[in-house]
Amino acid sequence: MKQIALIHVGKAYDGKYVLKDFSASFEKGGVYAVMGPSGAGKTTLLRLLAGLEKPDEGEITGLSSEKIAFVFQEDRLLEYLDAVQNVRFACPGCSRKDVEEALLHIGIPQEDAVRPVREYSGGMKRRTAFLRALMFPSDVLFLDEPFKGLDDQMVSRAAAFLLENRKDRTVFLTTHSRKEAELCGAEILYLPEISPDGI
């Protein structure tokens, strides 16, 4: 199995380390949940893996040629477009029918799917952003708190949908909930908080 590796990776903002001398390796095709207290560097780790930021120290291997999809902590939707159009904005190859069916699976009925997302609740926006990433043809899925704002029932539905549709893609997700990680069948990576002196 090919591997993704972080080798002595360090990342600091304004001189303050968020990740320091961090090493880990992941098998491609696996599901990994990054957990840890707020400020432990979960989002930073995802962004480094996704190549959205460069490490200050160390290196990351195994991901340079991969096509990625990302659920950002903020939904980052085009507010005046509807859910179908938002998904198809990222994935023009997806048919309208397929997107509508997928939206239905995650609890967005057709009559809501044609409304501008600015009229959506937080949970509906989150599910749209989640589906956009899932339907985008990628090799690696990065999900930064993908179930934020969803109730337990919806989390179960979304997690099941993820497992059904991830195919053999590698998945990295961040969460504060062990239950969410378990629902996704993820291997948990726990990030400890770095002390102010960087240890």
């Binding site: 959205l52 990302f70 980052r76 477009l81 904005f89 956009r132």
Partner: peptide, 21 residues
């Protein structure tokens, strides 16, 4: 919004789609 620009970059949205949408 720089967040939207980053999102469009991640999903490899073409220039014309970015401009239009």
């Amino acid at each position: 919004d720089p967040g939207l620009k980053e999102m469009a970059g991640v999903f490899r949205v073409t220039l014309w789609r970015k401009i239009w949408f």
